[in-house]
Simulated scan of single mutants.
Amino acid sequence: MGLEAVVGDIKEKGRKEVAAIQAETQAGVKRILEEAQEQAAEIKQKANEEAERDVQRIVNQEVSAANLAVRREMLNAEKDTLSRVHDDTLAAIAGLPAEIHAQALRTLLPEAAAAIKGGVVYCNARDIPTVKEILAENKDLTEFSIGAPIDIDGGAVVESADGRMKIDQSYRTFLETVWESGLKDASDILFP
């Protein structure tokens, strides 16, 4: 074998080795690219999932905040409505005919006299003539006098002679008692 044949063999062997190295390199590059694409896809999927969780969390927070704001507005509206009903009720009671007020005082004053044996009866200016009449008519009320008019819608406030005991029989006090005990029921009926 001549020198040319040996050189040809070496060249051929070199070309085969270069081709093998190139094929191996391309396979390695391809494998690295595929792994990189898989990692990129995983990273992208994780980022999408995290973004979706963040979006859902933000949406939930916004919905909760909106629901809370609506609930607060509803409660404020209900409170305003109940307050108007309370005030209208008191005004309607105060606006009842004089006979109704007189009958109420005829019932309330003896009840107060049972607890206080003598003292001063306070009422609004409208009811002073009625209270004077009741005090004059009822022998159980002879130890009572009438005081200066006070700012109440109706009923009376009875104070013992020594000032240590006071019985508030005003319409507002009765309404507050009924209002507090029936507020939940009224609210349930008005705002189901």
Rank of each mutant, 00 (worst) to 15 (best):
44 K>R: 08
29 V>S: 09
72 R>V: 05
125 A>K: 10
163 G>L: 04
98 A>S: 13
161 A>T: 04
160 S>Y: 09
150 I>F: 09
71 R>Y: 10
6 V>W: 12
186 A>G: 07
124 N>D: 10
152 I>M: 05
52 E>C: 00
119 G>C: 06
56 Q>C: 09
68 L>K: 14
32 I>C: 06
29 V>K: 12
96 L>W: 08
37 Q>H: 09
94 A>R: 14
180 E>P: 00
164 R>G: 14
123 C>R: 06
100 I>T: 15
122 Y>H: 14
120 V>K: 03
51 A>P: 00
38 E>D: 03
86 H>P: 00
101 H>S: 11
126 R>A: 11
95 G>N: 12
117 K>W: 00
178 V>H: 13
139 K>S: 09
154 G>M: 02
170 S>K: 01
121 V>F: 01
149 P>H: 02
168 D>N: 12
52 E>D: 01
110 P>L: 15
65 A>M: 09
137 E>K: 15
52 E>P: 02
2 G>R: 06
75 L>I: 08
90 L>I: 14
60 N>L: 12
46 K>W: 03
26 Q>A: 15
180 E>S: 10
62 E>D: 06
132 K>S: 03
146 I>R: 03
96 L>Q: 11
31 R>N: 12
161 A>N: 11
20 A>M: 04
135 L>I: 04
81 T>V: 13
156 A>E: 05
135 L>S: 02
92 A>M: 12
57 R>T: 15
50 E>H: 11
114 A>T: 09
41 A>Y: 03
149 P>I: 02
130 T>A: 09
190 L>I: 07
27 A>Y: 10
131 V>K: 02
74 M>K: 12
12 E>C: 06
179 W>H: 10
188 D>M: 04
116 I>A: 01
75 L>M: 08
26 Q>M: 15
69 A>S: 12
161 A>S: 12
69 A>N: 06
131 V>Y: 07
87 D>K: 11
34 E>W: 00
61 Q>C: 04
51 A>E: 07
128 I>M: 10
187 S>C: 08
161 A>W: 05
76 N>Q: 14
37 Q>L: 14
146 I>Y: 04
29 V>W: 03
151 D>I: 02
134 I>Q: 01
2 G>P: 01
53 R>W: 06
101 H>K: 11
159 E>L: 09
17 E>H: 07
150 I>L: 03
157 V>C: 03
6 V>T: 06
